[in-house]
Design a protein around this nucleic acid. Structure first.
Lengths: 148, 148
DNA sequence: TTAAAACCTCTAGTCACTAGAGCTTCAAGC
DNA sequence: GCTTGAAGCTCTAGTGACTAGAGGTTTTAA
């Protein structure tokens, strides 16, 4: 098998990311260095594709790169306990839930800002008024702060 | 009135942000430069507090700084049409809704990953398996990509 | 008067990419 | 075998919205 045959562009297309992103992952050590042609171009095989696909999927789920690094390591030692992976996923789930809660309260507030729509002038524009006076807004989204 | 009497730390506490954030806003021109003591320390008055509060509130709603800049400008010309502020808010509402939709599908997938919980080993860990095989996941979150 | 808390500027770092300059290599058609 | 254009290469810098730290100065309360 002359396995490593995919050039970087084809790999990028096949997992739906940019070429630079792949080089970036290699640079920060998430992806092992690719095989190279005599002219120093990267060539990838199926294993690389699977790993990259794993990374991209985890990124879409919002895992930060350090967590993904850990998940990749776990996936390798196939006999170690699953609980660590679970814990990482659970942490991520909590973060996602917090973000949803916060965004929901923001959605409600934005909808309220807009619901009487066409005030003709800025001086009675609900959007501006609401932003100017924090007291007008739902109490909710102050508590939900926490993170990014 | 010796209006500008709040030092930067007190202002930061009063609106719930960091000192450096206030200096940053001044640096990028979102906040007008503060008055200074003879020793060059910043002193703020009520107007600054209101403006900063407006900015922080808008940030909590997820508006990016360029949009906030525009909103601030609009708030100043109190006779101009409200429709521009409305449009900005509406755009932001759309972004918030998209983000919620995406996060919801991620939440579902993460919950599914975790629901059979305690597989004892990595080789049958749903978290790892789900990440490794994108085909296993709900179709949803691919469509919802779009943006940040 | 002194001491410590708060302030100052400036630089660099964060995260996860993304963009661009300037150059080289590959692959397909002739 | 030659040409040509797409795709590759490295390296540097930029993004957004802060955040952190070094190293020094000012303020304020005891």
């Amino acid at each position: 098998m002359r396995e490593p045959s995919l050039p970087i562009g084809a790999l990028a297309r096949s997992v739906g990311c940019k070429v630079q992103t792949i080089r970036y992952y290699e640079q920060v050590g998430l992806l092992p260095p690719a095989a190279r042609t005599p002219g120093a171009q990267r060539r990838y095989g199926e294993l690389h594709r699977q790993k990259l696909s794993f990374i991209r999927h985890a990124r879409e789920l919002g895992f930060p790169l350090p967590a993904i690094r850990e998940l990749l390591a776990l996936a390798n030692e196939r006999d170690s306990a699953c609980s660590r992976a679970d814990r990482i996923a659970r942490r991520q789930l909590e973060a996602v839930r917090r973000r949803i809660a916060m965004l929901e309260s923001l959605r409600v507030e934005l909808e309220r800002m807009l619901e009487h729509g066409q005030g003709r002038h800025v001086r009675d524009c609900r959007v501006i008024a609401t932003l100017a006076d924090h007291g007008l807004c739902a109490e909710a989204h102050h508590k939900a702060d926490a993170e990014h």
